[in-house]
Design a protein around this nucleic acid. Structure first.
Lengths: 336, 336
DNA sequence: TTGAAAGCGCTAACAT
DNA sequence: ATGTTAGCGCTTTCAA
């Protein structure tokens, strides 16, 4: 006697209803193995009518895969509102959903790998996307050790890592070159966050390339790397102003937002008193008055591409080791 | 002969190594059933030494639960960069991780329930958090039908829903009351997004309450509900300016950002020409010059609390039906 | 083309 | 306190 609360319909129910074996039903669904077209149709119809949908846990267990991918997202204070990761995550999630995969959030603070470790050890993700790779590569190491496929958004330190990137170096080089047309190299400020982040390294490299291409040497006096927190930022800005920098380039939109805010708070007007540009664009920079010159990288597209690559890998397809997405240079009032 | 690539150690391996049954090992781990303290210690030690960690898929399968919770997040255009959801998600994720649960992202655009349905039908989440409940309650309905526990962040339309909310109504009422001290009711603008969102309804209710408490009637001429998209917003602002509104309240930070931007683009100065306040605070509003008067709701705390509630429910604990978190009123230059 | 049966790694009812 | 055993709902090998 079955008094249980409406047991969900499962493979066996379909099989019985049709008087065939569940093996056949399974095959009809998956398309693996041979099933006569008519049987196939009957099965599919029956599934529709009986409103069957497979128990993914059972399927996972049997196939030893989860149909989940993990997405490592920074949850440091400075980053909690950084739009890049949210937009990137959405691109990933949409793409995964289309292919019947789900997206597992894996938080990390200051490079901490414990959450990633937890997820991997419990085998709850078939693959991983790292949205902000660090140069120490500890995550990649972990993934490689456990033979879990992964994709990094931005340059990876793992030797064989599959990477989707944004031509950061090239973009930052072009933006810098543009700014050098109206600013002397030694009056050009640069503020970049943690150099542990590969993306910041790329950006810095682009800056250096542009400066050197212009025949100048890198203005170490006005270049600030590894800047972190509002206090440090405040000091950096004071320093830049003291040196009468005509223009400051911000490593990303979060830094830029703070810079813009601090400049305003001490009565400096952009671009009259100082020009401002940023190496990454978000709504913040679009909406500012004046709008901020920046490089636009499409975070959603990066995410979607990363997901596509990873899912292809999981399905055994060959993927290119490095995919590059373009950028747009948005020249706006803040540097005019 | 086993040439397989380093099969992971499992329960049975521990059992064999210790010469006991895997049942005992299982019991030692879970704490369910009686195990002698010494056996328990030996097991735990052995687990440590052999670096065992349970296969969560198998555990899930056996227990018929996933140790995942689903988080429904809006992915509409207007919301792709809304910091609230990102911060909320982080709160949830951190909280879940602490209790060995994982967080599954479920996207929704314009109230679409298909992704939620997909996740539920594949039984990949034990419970769900809805971060932006809609008044039509279609998600709640789906969840109720499938008997999946859920928590809404903000008022729910489901009768028995467990809810964690922010005293939006009360907060918005207080903020409005404050603004009414220096602005005539009929010169007070209000711009709110889709009224399908329960949170917008709460906010509007708070506004109405304050206006009526002041003895005035709701200024329908300057109240705009269901505002959506930049074009509409632009028209609304023109209208408000034409009516010589002295102050405009924005329904949330995204709207506010656009408003601030549009005002600047037509040369209006805050607060000289028009005052601006917002019903929800984020970095955008903190960082603006001048900073924007706003209500601060702690998105991260909301998320964490929602997660705690949901996990408690999943573990069979009784939870209160409605939990209220406070708010802070941040009076700043934009309304002075 | 189809079916029978084993197995995936746990948990839990039942037995001792 | 510990062990035996039967599942959980799929996939897949092997046989027919």
């Amino acid at each position: 006697m079955d008094n249980s609360v409406s047991r969900t319909v499962q493979l066996d129910d379909i099989a019985k209803a049709l008087g065939i074996s569940k093996t056949t039903v399974s095959r009809a669904i998956s398309g693996k193995g041979r099933v006569s077209p008519e049987t196939r149709d009957r099965v599919l119809e029956c599934i529709r009518v009986m409103n069957y949908s497979p128990n993914m846990i059972a399927k996972s267990f049997s196939e030893n895969r989860t149909y989940n991918i993990g997405v490592v997202i920074p949850m440091d204070d400075m980053e909690t509102e950084a739009p890049f990761f949210q937009t990137c995550l959405m691109g990933i999630s949409k793409c995964c959903a289309l292919r019947n995969y789900d997206t597992l959030v894996i938080g990390t603070e200051r490079g901490d790998v414990s959450q990633l470790k937890r997820v991997l050890e419990s085998r709850k993700a078939d693959g991983v996307i790292i949205t902000r790779p660090l140069r120490n590569g500890s995550m990649e190491q972990l993934l490689a050790d456990m033979s879990i496929p992964y994709v990094t958004v931005g340059q990876s330190s793992g030797v064989d890592a599959v990477t989707i990137d944004s031509e950061h170096k090239e973009g930052c080089c072009q933006l810098t070159s543009y700014l050098l047309m109206n600013n002397k190299p030694n009056k050009l400020g640069l503020i970049i966050g943690s150099m542990e982040q590969t993306v910041n390294k790329s950006r810095y490299d682009g800056f250096v390339k542009a400066v050197e291409a212009s025949g100048a040497t890198v203005p170490n006096q006005t270049v600030f790397l590894g800047v972190n927190g509002e206090l440090q930022l405040r000091r950096v800005i004071d320093d830049l102003l003291q040196r009468e920098c005509g223009c400051v380039i911000c490593g990303d939109d979060m830094i830029c937002m703070h810079v813009v805010n601090m400049l305003a708070s001490i009565g400096k007007v952009i671009p009259r008193d100082i020009r401002v540009a940023s190496f990454y664009n978000s709504m913040y920079l679009d909406m500012n008055s004046p709008p901020i010159t920046a490089l636009r990288f499409r975070a959603g597209d990066l995410g979607a591409t990363a997901a596509t690559l990873l899912l292809d890998m999981l399905e055994g397809k060959e993927t290119s080791r490095e995919t590059m997405l373009g950028f747009e240079m948005l020249i706006r009032k803040s540097t005019m």
